[in-house]
Nucleic acid binder design. Structure first.
Length: 112
DNA sequence: AATTTGACCCGTC
DNA sequence: AGACGGGCCAAAT
């Protein structure tokens, strides 16, 4: 038997996204062992047939919904995200604040 | 077969 | 924040 197809790995990575949390296409691709294949992830999402697939937890790297504002997918995704407690604002998801660099902590404002 | 398209990403300005 | 260019890969034209 051959190895699992990339599609299966991508689907698995998407299913692995915890409820109430989101992930970027590139992030999913990387978790699926396919770094740089973000577009492939998008294609797979467009071809998905599984109703239980949390496709709505996948966003752009900017934290924005990949659908055009006002589109059906856009509203559905934003609504589903809000249903999980994700804060969606103007088609954009408030992502987790990145950890500050050590230099910033040491040499930041007030360190002088 | 070449070009365009698509639920994209990253570094740089 | 937004704009630009390069990368990536498969389907559609």
């Amino acid at each position: 038997m051959t190895a699992k197809s990339s599609e299966q790995r991508i689907l698995a990575a998407i299913r692995a996204i915890p409820r109430g949390q989101v992930a970027g296409y590139g992030e999913v691709a990387q978790r699926a062992g396919l770094p740089g294949r973000a577009r492939l992830v998008a294609r797979v999402l467009g071809n998905h047939d599984e109703p239980d697939l949390p496709w709505y937890r996948v966003l752009r790297s900017d934290g924005r919904i990949a659908f055009p504002e006002g589109s059906r997918g856009f509203r559905e995704q934003s609504q589903r995200l809000r249903a999980e407690g994700v804060r969606v604002e103007n088609g954009r998801v408030r992502r987790v604040k990145p950890a500050p660099d050590l230099d910033e902590a040491l040499w930041g404002p007030g360190a002088g």
